[in-house]
Amino acid sequence: MTQSSAMRDANPLQLLRSLRKHWHLLLIMSWRDVVGRYRGSLMGMVWTFVTPLLLLLIYTFVFTVVFKTKWNVETGEQGKATFAIVLFVGMIIHGLMAEILTRSPGLMLGNANYVKKVVFPLEILPLTLFLSAFFHFAVSVGVLLLAMIVLGHPLHLTILLLPLTLLPMVPMLLGIAWGFASIGVYLRDIGHLTGLISTVLLFLSPIFFPVEALGEPYQQLMALNPLTVIIEQSREVVLWGRLPDVSALAIYSVVSCLLGWFGLLLFQKGRKGFADVI
């Protein structure tokens, strides 16, 4: 594929036309991915609820009892309950990115039958991965709301702003899916690297500790983490009832859109050789 052809196919308007034409296929394949993950298991999709809850209990115990992480919350059982909710917000946002990071490198290899079809719209395969990951994220948000009610944490009206707070992250996640799906065809080792990146992000994001607990130089470095702004602003609207920082989200949106476009460009540039390599 020539440079001009790749640039043309990476045009967002061209992508929107493809989505409008194949939206039904996108939805069917996304749901098939969600259901297929639990095919043959005894509990089925119940694991969607059990897994995040189990991790939440383990991490809450480790970081409140073993490591005694300090947050600006009251002590005692109520404080631990608040910490669990604070922790869960960060966990589910990291989980959304982690699923896309770890699964995208093998996406084309796992769908070789589609890759080798001349007329199949390959650009929607990373979108099916995103929608599947977002489905599990939405279930986790439901679990979060239920936990807040059970634990007696107030539900603020600002929680309705959560979708707008998460929206700036979407282009970047799509760019990650497109980019690593393309790279994974030619460089099979990338799957090991993305798994490592996911683990690093888990412990270097403000999930188990507040940004304020770090010194000024480290806070500036933490701001470069792609999860920091989204996690912090999501906690603002969900837990503390405060409006998000619009300027921070606006800057994040610009960078996210650029990364999303770059990932799409990388995918369109590499897709011509997918069938030959696979």
Rank of each mutant, 00 (worst) to 15 (best):
S198L: 11
K117I: 07
W240R: 01
L57V: 15
Y252I: 06
L221I: 09
L13N: 08
L174F: 13
A138I: 14
G184M: 02
H153F: 12
L243E: 03
V118K: 14
V139D: 09
A147T: 12
E212D: 04
W240E: 01
N113T: 10
I183V: 15
I28L: 13
E99C: 01
Q14P: 00
A275Q: 14
T64F: 13
I197F: 13
S30R: 10
E99T: 07
V35C: 01
G241A: 02
E236N: 06
M91A: 04
Y59R: 04
P163M: 13
R188N: 08
L164N: 01
V255M: 08
F130S: 05
Q14E: 14
S247G: 02
K21N: 03
Q78Y: 14
L239K: 02
L258W: 11
W178A: 02
L157W: 10
I190Q: 02
I124H: 05
L161P: 02
V170T: 14
V150T: 12
L131E: 08
V277G: 03
F49K: 04
Y38K: 02
S140F: 06
A248C: 05
I176K: 03
I100Q: 11
Q268Y: 10
T165K: 11
L193D: 03
L161N: 01
F135V: 13
K68S: 04
G273H: 14
L144V: 09
Q268D: 05
R39D: 03
L155C: 10
L155N: 10
D245F: 14
I197A: 11
L109T: 10
G36H: 04
L221E: 01
H153A: 07
I28H: 11
P226F: 05
L27V: 12
N111V: 13
A250M: 14
L201Y: 06
L87A: 05
E232C: 00
A81W: 09
